[in-house]
């Protein structure tokens, strides 16, 4: 238990292979999918992705097989994926 602390990117690393929910900075965009990998910038490769865009209160979903997500506008990562509606 000496290594009680978990580095932030170690937490992301633990999410590889499982579902993750990505909230983007200052845009009304979210993505959920299976995290396949990431790099030091937290650019992420996701599979079986659902992109959710909310414009004018209208919710639009787009399904994509695989995505390389630019880490630049990522705000929050939630392990386990998006909550059920």
């Amino acid at each position: 238990m000496s290594t009680g602390r978990l580095l932030p990117l170690e937490l992301v690393d633990k999410c590889i292979g499982s579902s993750i929910w990505v909230l983007m900075k200052d845009t009304n965009t979210e993505l959920t999918g299976t995290l396949k990998g990431f790099d030091d910038f937290v650019n992420m490769v996701l599979e079986d992705v659902t992109e959710i865009r909310i414009t004018d209160g209208e919710r639009k979903e787009v399904k994509l097989d695989s995505v390389l997500l630019n880490g630049n506008n990522v705000a929050i990562l939630v392990p386990g994926g998006a909550p059920e509606e």
Binding site: I16, K36, F38, D39, M44, V45, L68
Partner: peptide, 20 residues
């Protein structure tokens, strides 16, 4: 995880392919 696909390997895999 044996199947970690990093961004750089992903990019190599889609070179020359249709993308969005």
């Amino acid at each position: 995880p044996p199947t970690s696909v990093t961004p750089s390997t992903y990019l190599k895999s889609i070179l020359g392919r249709p993308i969005l």
